[in-house]
Structures are given as structure tokens and as C-alpha cells.
């Protein structure tokens, strides 16, 4: 196909424009977080401050509760990701390999959980967890997040299992292995990329969750990063440098996991087209 020179120039310019749109907000976050306090207002809208410093980061790490929030979020997101991946591997494997009575109903049920407004569960879940002592606790959050993420992760894992030929297990079974042995020793190692992608998706989702954390957690001890950051923002709404330094800290794990799952985004998003 002939591609005109003008068309190519226009194409590259359009891509450049979108790159600026996508990256500018993140650039701004980083820029304010390294601007020293005395320049914050005088050079408020300059593209780069005349002097940079890490004072906000130092303050946030040494004198605030953010390291605690960060740790809490890390515990919650990692535990959720690991538990969800185990449960979703099992369920996704069953959906991929077995034809059993009620299978269509189970799939429909899981799809349904992705369609209704989760916000309507905020009140009942709070009421249910209170007598169990699971409000204000990281365990409570892990349980709730695990349930919310299992359906999507199951479809994702199923799509990875579907890509592995069935003949592998059949050969193993002829050699005397049970289905579960074949699953654990042959199929799981082959789906390692899928497992990594699922871990990444679920970690990011749990790391970002806000509304249930706000409702279920009060006080600092069990606050996750979003809860801590929002209460910091409402209390000290003028410490922009510190708020944005904390924001950059919240961004780091999410970006790391994004790099991990980047290659599987298409598969993940089509499996989870119902969710996002």
C-alpha cells in the first residue's frame, strides 16, 4: 500500500500528541513531588522547577504513617493476588477441561457477579463483617477483595488453560497419573505466564480498591494506601509536595506490575471485558 509522506508525518504527530496526553499527568505528579516547598507556589505552573529536592519523599518516609499504609496495602494486595490465583487456577481448570452438570449455570453466575453494582454490597458486607471482627482488619479486606476478583481471574486462567492441548494430560493419564497430578505437574508449569498475568491483574485491582477500604477501615492501624492518602489529603490539603510524593509511592508497585502484565493485556482485557 502506498503511504504518502504527509500521511506518515501526520501519523507520527498524532502519536506524539497522544503520548503527551497519556504521560503529562504522571510527569506533573513527579514534578511537584520534587519541587522544594519555597518554590511550590512561586513556580507553581512552570514545567520544571529551577531546583529539585527529595525533601517531600524524606518527610513522607520518615515522619508520616505512609510506610505503614504502604506495608498494609502490600500485605493485602499480595495475599489477595496469591489466594485468588490459586482459587482461579482450580476453577478455571475445571471450566476448561471438564464437562459437568451445572457448568453453564456456574459460568452465568460468575458473569452476573461482574455486572451488578458492587457499591450496593458496601452496607451489607459491613453489617456482616462487624460481628465477625473483620472490620478494621486486613484479613477482612483480603476476604472481600478475593471474592470480588475470583470470577474475572477464573475466566482469565481458563483462557490460558484453553490454549494448552488436552493431549498432554491424556498422555499422562495413560501413564497412570490422576487428573490432579497431571494438572499440578504438567499443566500448571506450562501456564506460568498466565499465572504471572493473573497475579499482576489482581494485585493492581486490590492495590487500587478504594470504596470498600474506606467503609471497612477506620483509623490508621489497618488503613491501606488509598484510605491513608485520602485522609491525609482532607487533613493537610495544603501540603501538595508531600501529598504528591505519597502519590508517587502509590504509583510504583502498580507500574511494576503493569510491566509484568503488559504483554498479556489483550488476553486479560478480553477475558475480563465484562470487568475492565
Amino acid at each position: 500500500m502506498r503511504v504518502s509522506f504527509l500521511g506518515t508525518v501526520f501519523h507520527r504527530l498524532a502519536i506524539l500528541a497522544y503520548l503527551l496526553f497519556a504521560l503529562f499527568p504522571l510527569f506533573w505528579l513527579v514534578k511537584v513531588s520534587v519541587t522544594p516547598n519555597d518554590l511550590l507556589y512561586s513556580e507553581g505552573i512552570r514545567l520544571w522547577p529551577s531546583r529539585t529536592s527529595f525533601e517531600h519523599f524524606r518527610f513522607v518516609l520518615e515522619n508520616s504513617a505512609f510506610p505503614l499504609f504502604f506495608r498494609n496495602s502490600l500485605i493485602v494486595a499480595t495475599s489477595t493476588a496469591v489466594i485468588v490465583t490459586v482459587l482461579a487456577s482450580l476453577a478455571g481448570y475445571a471450566f476448561s477441561r471438564f464437562a459437568f452438570r451445572g457448568r453453564a449455570w456456574l459460568v452465568a453466575l460468575m458473569l452476573l457477579t461482574q455486572m451488578f453494582p458492587l457499591v450496593m454490597l458496601v452496607a451489607p458486607i459491613f453489617k456482616m463483617l462487624t460481628p465477625l471482627g473483620l472490620t478494621n482488619s486486613l484479613t477482612g479486606l483480603v476476604i472481600v477483595y478475593t471474592a470480588f476478583n475470583v470470577p474475572f481471574a477464573t475466566f482469565l486462567m481458563q483462557s490460558f488453560f484453553d490454549g494448552i492441548p488436552k493431549e498432554l494430560e491424556e498422555a499422562a493419564k495413560i501413564d497412570g497419573a490422576t487428573q490432579f497430578m497431571a494438572f499440578r505437574q504438567i499443566i500448571l508449569p506450562l501456564t506460568l505466564p498466565g499465572i504471572a498475568a493473573t497475579l499482576g491483574f489482581v494485585f493492581t485491582a486490590a492495590w487500587s480498591e478504594l470504596l470498600f477500604a474506606l467503609m471497612l477501615i477506620s483509623g490508621n492501624a489497618a488503613a491501606t494506601f488509598p484510605v491513608g492518602l485520602l485522609s491525609f489529603v482532607s487533613k493537610f490539603s495544603v501540603d501538595f509536595g508531600q501529598m504528591m510524593a505519597a502519590g508517587v509511592l502509590a504509583l510504583i508497585p502498580a507500574c511494576l506490575f503493569f510491566l509484568l502484565i503488559q504483554r498479556y493485556l489483550v488476553q486479560g482485557l478480553t477475558a475480563g471485558a465484562v470487568k475492565g
Binding site: 497522544y18 504521560l23 506533573w28 504509583l251 503493569f258
Partner: peptide
Amino acid sequence: VQALVFLPWAVPTFLTGLNWAWMFNPVIGP
């Protein structure tokens, strides 16, 4: 380029909201 333009999707939503609120704030945002 693909990785970079898809990056916003990985930014936690609470941070997306805060960051845009800051960018709309005339004191600190452009």
C-alpha cells in the same frame, strides 16, 4: 509507545482522581 500510552490504565483510580484534582487546582496545576 504501546506500553507508554497504555500506562494510565495501571494507575490506581484513587490516584488518578487525586492527580487530576491537583491538575485542576490553579495553585498547583497548569
